[in-house]
Design a protein around this nucleic acid. Structure first.
Lengths: 156, 156
DNA sequence: GTAAAAGTTAAAGTAAGGTTTAAGTCAAGG
DNA sequence: CCTTGACTTAAACCTTACTTTAACTTTTAC
């Protein structure tokens, strides 16, 4: 293909996403493609950056909605600059920090909860934050707030 | 309810799961309930430990299949001992370690990739592990193997 | 002894994140 | 030209993890 635009197959090969996923992402407003006169997609190379971002984001558990929100920070009308990417990377960095923190907190909570063999719902608030009836005494609360709440519907 | 068994409503209240989720978990073989003569469920209190485990596992991204596999390590015929829980906690600890490691690696990779402003798919292998055509020179590969592979179908 | 609260089932519905299929169109090489 | 491979669309389908609904039964409380 020519030096300015990439076909679906090329973008699929280079990004690692299936062509169907690329079409899906376009429908969902995460990426953009120009069209030939005949209606076929032609991608600018900058889409590969978006796709790399999307892949990494998906891997750490961000939803497509979240990714769309973050990508919306990129200018649509011009090629993103170093500063643009840097700005949104900071948004993401924060999210990653939170997620690492939550995981570590949970893991360490297990060290002193399952790890110690107690795992008693009467005493251990780490694994049983909901059990108001049984929770007495302060006890250590290891889980950050995000993880102490019940899973929202559809969070699976 | 009596001192040996809990109703669905009680387990739901104490575990934080909806009654429908409890029935679903039972169908899926993750938890067990005895039945009254009339066919209503009566749970032993040990189910609360399983549910706490399930909740925590779901929060860190384990699928129900994974949870079932891990819970299968618990004896079905007797109340789990401290040693039983301790054994499966080690399985889980390993999984959590891996996940934390993957997240940190990705975050740190971003520090030197998006963070530095390069985010060039021609040069940065962190965000573009698939782009064989464009990858030249070694470059640092920050992503652990698990995160460098394309998302499996249904991994969303 | 009876009404209401709580429980039961199977089956359908939901949401995210895609993939697959069917039927047809475009583009590139010989 | 014209074939062949790549591409197009809409719509249906898939998996995970549940929830909702409808029709009906058990338990509990008075």
């Amino acid at each position: 293909m020519a030096q300015g635009s990439l076909t679906v197959a090329e973008v699929a090969a280079r990004s690692g996403f299936a062509a169907s996923a690329l079409r899906y992402y376009e429908r969902e407003g995460l990426i953009h493609a120009d069209r030939t006169e005949g209606g076929q997609r032609r991608y600018e190379r900058v889409v590969l950056r978006r796709l790399a971002f999307i892949r990494a984001a998906r891997h750490v558990g961000l939803t497509l909605d979240e990714v769309r929100d973050v990508l919306a920070e990129l200018p649509a009308s011009r090629t993103p600059t170093r500063a643009d990417w840097s700005r949104i990377s900071h948004l993401w960095r924060k999210r990653l920090d939170e997620q690492v923190e939550a995981l570590v907190a949970l893991r360490d909570g297990l060290d002193s909860c399952i790890g110690c063999g107690c795992l008693s719902l009467k005493r251990c608030r780490t694994l049983n934050p909901q059990d108001v009836a049984a929770a007495h005494g302060p006890g250590a609360v290891y889980l950050p707030k995000r993880l102490r709440e019940p899973l929202a519907s559809g969070e699976g």
